[in-house]
Amino acid sequence: MSKLADPIAATAAGPVRREKLARALFRFRQSRLSLLGAAIVALVLFFALLGSVLAPYPDDVRGSVSTAARFLAPSAAHPFGTNEVGQDVLSLTMAGTTVSVLAGFGVVIIGSLLGTLVGAVAGFAGGLVDEALMRFTDLVLTIPSLILAMAIAAALGPGFENMVLAISLSWWPGYARLVRGEVLAAREEVYVTAARAIGASPARVLFRHILPNCLSPIIVKMSLDMGFAILTVAGLGFIGIGVRPPTPEWGTLLSTARSYMPDYWWTAMAPGMAMFLAVFGFNLLGDGLRDVLDPRGRR
């Protein structure tokens, strides 16, 4: 029934953008789950920024070892216990948020940029260019992404940047396919024909008219992908290709904890739950964003 509102909006002067935002918020708030997702994501981002500062035992984060306090069970002093070198698991997990979230962001941003470029060019140019680019995309898709990332990471050597790059290079095909489809659909819109009839250059048509109207599904996919990217980063850490200790990272924490299961189960508790929460939160947020930005894709 939003059409009803059009005549008023057109006659009443007022801050248009703020009203649009209010409308989006209204729709977003209709779903409790998206609000929960937004709250969890806010919490995760908060710890990503301030985790190492707020950690109750900042020394442990920097790598200090106290063998006297190893494998302490959860208590008031150490809510999630201590690990094999006597570090506070909660502090490590809080500090580990930074690396995980940063890596996740990096992967999603690089991956979506690469994928959007490939998909947009393929969809817009069509013909042979499209065929070639999409067959290459399919080829990359056939290789399991974790294995591809492992191979690239192994070739590039360890380290944070290399890990992000490795995952990104296995991450873009999803975006390429999504964007190509969106571009193909947007290309047939009447306003695109209008732009061509005006005499606008192909670049102008693509960047001014087609791509801005493909943004919503890309943003939604980015939000949904954040969780999986964090999971993949942790996966590489778990295998031992990711960030090296002493930098705390959830995957590495879990991997070390695995050797002491099930006797010292608490060492795995905090990083596991953190990962679960982050993935869960980003997915709920993504679903909520889809409802707001891309109502077609509902259910």
């Binding site: 029934m1 939003s2 009803l4 509102a5 209010a22 409308r23």
Partner: peptide, 11 residues
């Protein structure tokens, strides 16, 4: 009537 973001519309 229809309820929407803008209020109740008497359709």
């Amino acid at each position: 009537t229809m309820s929407s973001f803008d209020g109740l519309a008497h359709v």
